[in-house]
Simulated scan of single mutants.
Amino acid sequence: MNAVLDTHVRLAIEKVEREAWFDMYAAAPDDYIQNSKLSSARLGTSIALADHGTPIAEFNRVLGIGIDEPASEAELEQAIAWLNEHASPSYALQVAPTALPEAVWTWIEARGLKRAGNGWAKHYRDAVPTEEHPIPTALEVIRLEPHHAADFGHVAQAGFGLPLPIGAWLSALVGRPKWNVYVAYEGPTPVACGAMFIDHGWAWLGVDATLSDYRGRGAQNALIKRRLTDGIAAGVVGFTAETGQPPEGQEELNKSYCNYVRAGFKKAYVRPNYVSNG
């Protein structure tokens, strides 16, 4: 991957993730928005997300700063102010290592935010044909139609251990433009899920969850392969996903990380999380 392509890819995978999450929040039903104090906003070229009903960083963060164009201190101040006003206290400011200008890191730390944990590994894969997994699964992967949307919401909520009401929100992604939503079944029982958002020829893969009793049976490998196959058929030129970044030397212990590596994804970079000391 040459330097020009590398810059293009890093921009594209940040943008498609940004748009996927912003559209996901736009899909939320009104009652969920009211009960969970859900909100989202575009702040310049970044997006801000808040969900008091799901008080974890994935649902309470700002991402995209310094990607489309260099950030300013005013933009950073706006992002932090928005999070303090709208988000759960467990929020994160996520800034890609390619964000401009380089002074953005100094600005963040000067405002009392500290880097937390190992960050998120951003994975990338081009549109080469997929290969068969060495251990096929007996589970059946189905692209859902709206009349089975509740299966997706149930598996995502239960698989991640999220608050029960979030199932109705995530179910709303089924049948929504730009989204392809999948569930793996054992007979009639929904046991695992995954989603794909396609925008401007790029695809974001996410909402990968498996019910605890069905883990280790190849469901996510099959779901990744199906999304890659369908995405390539739809003209996707590049795919991205993110997982937690394992400690150095312990990558093989993170199942999600290994699933994407096994499917031909390469880690593009690690995106840190900055959190408030408060």
Rank of each mutant, 00 (worst) to 15 (best):
N2G: 15
V4M: 14
E17H: 05
R18L: 15
F22G: 02
D23P: 03
M24C: 13
Y32G: 13
S36M: 05
K37G: 08
H52M: 01
G53I: 01
F59Y: 15
G66V: 06
E69R: 11
P70L: 08
A71C: 07
E85F: 06
H86P: 00
A96E: 02
T98N: 10
L100H: 09
T106K: 12
A110C: 01
K114D: 14
H123S: 06
R125E: 13
D126G: 01
H133D: 15
P136F: 00
R143P: 00
D151W: 01
Q157P: 02
A158L: 13
L162V: 01
A168S: 15
A168I: 09
W169T: 03
W169C: 05
A172I: 03
P177A: 05
W179Q: 04
V183I: 06
A184F: 07
P188C: 03
V191W: 01
A192S: 15
C193T: 13
C193V: 12
F197Y: 15
I198C: 13
A203Q: 10
R215A: 11
R217P: 03
G218F: 04
K225G: 04
R226L: 13
T229K: 11
I232S: 06
V237T: 14
A241F: 07
P246R: 10
P246D: 14
L253F: 12
C258L: 06
V261H: 12
A263W: 00
K267Y: 03
A268M: 14
R271K: 15
N273A: 11
N273R: 08
Y274R: 03
N277V: 06
